[in-house]
């Protein structure tokens, strides 16, 4: 039996107070975003960004839960509302790429007696020192 028959027929209508309250809270959060963006927090712009995004997520959660009625929705609707978070997968994996792209191989990764077939100009013991095989080539 599909799910549709398992629900009761009547639906509960929220009191207008809930909507007025949510609206007031959203407005306060909006003013908070604008206010926070004008302040330089200790810790730099990262903190600013975190605050701005946290407030945005809070606002979004309020709109989704109360205005869009997911709070009272069926489990299925909640599941689909959460489906939007697949976006974070795209975001997360792509940032993994961009943030690890500049990681460099370190000395320990190249076996000591490996023939120098591939040039690793960045494999150095200390910054500024020239790679061993390059120095050897000059002799």
């Amino acid at each position: 039996m599909s799910e549709h028959t398992e629900h009761t027929h009547g639906h509960h209508v929220d009191s207008p107070k809930l909507y007025y309250g949510t609206f007031a809270l959203l407005t306060v959060l909006m003013l908070l975003t604008i206010g926070a963006s004008q302040v330089h927090f200790p810790g730099g712009s990262l903190v600013n960004n975190l605050i701005a995004m946290t407030i945005a997520v809070l606002k979004a959660a309020l709109v989704v839960a109360i205005f869009m009625g997911v709070r009272k929705g069926s489990g299925l609707i909640k599941l689909y509302a959460l489906g939007g978070f697949v976006w974070f997968l795209l975001f997360f994996i792509m940032f993994c790429d961009y943030m690890t792209r500049s990681w460099e191989p370190v000395r320990g990764w190249v076996p000591k007696d490996a023939p120098v077939a591939v040039d690793y100009p960045y494999v150095t013991d200390t910054p500024g020192e020239r790679p061993a095989h390059e120095a050897k080539a000059e002799h």
Binding site: T33, S37, S45, N48, A52, I55, A56, A60, V63
Partner: peptide, 13 residues
């Protein structure tokens, strides 16, 4: 709600 802080309220890095 997301566009507003991302485009108009960018903090100075």
């Amino acid at each position: 709600i997301f566009l507003y802080p991302l485009f108009y309220l960018i903090p100075k890095p």
